[in-house]
Design a binder for these strands. Structure first.
Length: 450
DNA sequence: GGGAACATGAAGCGACAC
DNA sequence: GTGTCGCTTCATGTTCCC
């Protein structure tokens, strides 16, 4: 009984009514995962609004990877069932078999299509139910390498739409493996121009002078929220200074391992250094000095948490022809405004942006950028938890609806480098994903009533 | 007190050998 | 088909220092 009360409280905190929470527990059982309960309520709401009684049955009908890939997925699942002793015949979700719901990430990670990508891509026959097509268009982002089962849950919560996994290394000089779920068209996309540099030396030619031949990196790994300090770079310098020329294999490995982990660059003889914040802005697609004015720690953190602008812009580019008079945007987890920068660089006018962001430093960066570049209306809200369905409905009435709902919910509990609290979608921060779903459903409902 | 630096783990995947 | 190894990762908690 305690567990039931706790789950009801959690759902009420998310903005659902007590009746809805109770009904979901009756449908799914008190043992049902919180995400399953949220899905159940969302599905009920959509079914209610659209007068559909079999929404769950109608969902999940995409053919994501083409025949061979799909067959491989089925094979993999069979193998995993075998390994864990599951029969796969039960309709009930099993906690022991969560990995049964994993989602294969394509290799290479190039999404549905990419500009100037020469290799043949997998056939995409994405199907989206009519009631889930835009407007409103939505765009959701998070880390690709989330714990097993997370992307299946996210996809299920977002109308069973297939995620598009893209590594930004195919578009710029730095890796950033991300998954995107959206209901945007995928034909006639256009990249931002000029194209960003694809290698470290193209982006930062001055580092070529001191780059040793045995450091064969041509691109950076993912630019994270943390960076190396002077103690580490000093240690590397001393190790190289006392080593032979060229250094022994073991010294080389020690240095390269740290260079890869912290994306260090060569700034002198035997001298490595971290990238400066303004250097990180560049490959991520932000304007120069976008984050200037904050302390370096906040700059690294906000940039590490941001969108890759060129990737997002490529996906959003289809909106340009669809909305020549501009768009109304509901921006959840805005951060430093990667989505808005992408729209701006595409030349898409933002008539209104309702921005929800809790971090004061990121809000300041985004507000400053908005005031310098935009003429539309900016409404700021502090927390997704405080944005009620009624408020959403009022905004829909006031602005005539939202054309785009965009955001990437916190990855803290999903990211591979979190060694202490990688708890998945129910983790302290990442649980906010359910508010994205709730708010998106509120927008859809309000717009359907218009 | 707050910002910066440091030390830290493991899940998940691909490549490869057998 | 299976096991092993190496690599990558939108981070976190603690300590240090101003």
């Amino acid at each position: 009984m305690f567990e039931k009360d706790e789950k009801i409280n959690s759902l009420v905190d998310m903005g659902f009514s007590e009746d809805e929470a109770n009904m979901a527990i009756i449908r799914c059982g008190v043992d049902g995962d919180l995400s399953v309960l949220v899905d159940s309520i969302s599905a009920s709401r959509v079914a209610g609004n659209l007068n559909l009684s079999n929404h769950q049955v109608m969902g999940g009908c995409f053919d994501s990877f083409g025949g061979r890939k799909k067959a491989r997925l089925v094979e993999e699942r069979k193998k995993k069932r075998k390994r864990c002793g599951c029969t796969g015949q039960s309709n009930q979700p099993s906690l022991d078999c969560n990995h049964d719901e994993d989602m294969l990430i394509p290799n290479p990670m190039v999404g549905f299509n990419l500009p100037n990508y020469s290799l043949p891509l997998v056939r995409v026959t994405r199907r989206i139910l009519e009631q889930d097509m835009g407007p409103p268009y939505f765009y959701y982002e998070n880390v690709a390498r989330a714990p097993t089962g997370v992307w299946a849950t996210i996809s299920r919560s977002l109308y069973d739409i297939q995620p598009e996994f893209v590594d930004s290394k195919h578009l710029c000089a730095t890796a950033r493996k991300r998954g995107y779920i959206h209901n945007l068209p995928i034909e006639n996309r256009a990249p931002l121009l000029p194209s960003p540099p694809m290698t470290i030396f193209e982006a930062f030619p001055r580092y070529k002078k001191w780059w040793p031949s045995w450091d064969q990196r041509t691109q950076f790994n993912c630019l994270l929220t943390g960076v190396a300090g002077p103690k580490l770079t000093g240690k590397i310098g001393r190790a190289l200074a006392s080593a032979d020329t060229p250094p022994s294999q073991s010294i080389q490995k020690y240095v390269i391992d740290h260079c890869k982990r912290y994306n260090l660059v060569w700034v002198g003889k035997n001298k490595v250094a971290k990238l400066e914040p303004q250097e990180i802005e560049y490959p991520l697609g932000f304007p120069k000095d976008h984050t200037r004015g904050l302390g370096d720690t906040n700059r690294y953190k906000s940039l590490g948490n941001s969108f890759h602008v060129d990737t997002v812009a490529y996906h959003l580019s289809v909106l340009k022809g669809m909305f020549p008079n501009g768009v109304n945007v509901l921006s959840l987890f805005t951060g430093i405004g990667g989505g808005e920068v992408a729209l701006h660089r595409l030349g898409i006018n933002m008539r209104t942006v309702v921005s929800v962001e809790i971090d004061k430093a990121s809000k300041r960066i985004f507000r400053d950028w908005w005031n310098q570049t935009q003429t539309g209306t900016l409404i700021e809200i502090d927390d997704v938890k405080s944005l009620t369905d009624d408020q959403v409905a009022t905004y829909v009435t006031t602005f005539g609806g939202f054309d785009l709902v965009i955001g990437g919910s916190p990855c803290n509990n999903l990211a591979g480098c979190n060694r202490s609290s990688r708890h998945g979608l129910e983790g302290k921060q990442s649980v906010l994903f359910h508010h994205y779903v709730r708010i998106l459903n509120a927008v859809k409902s309000a717009m359907a009533r218009k």
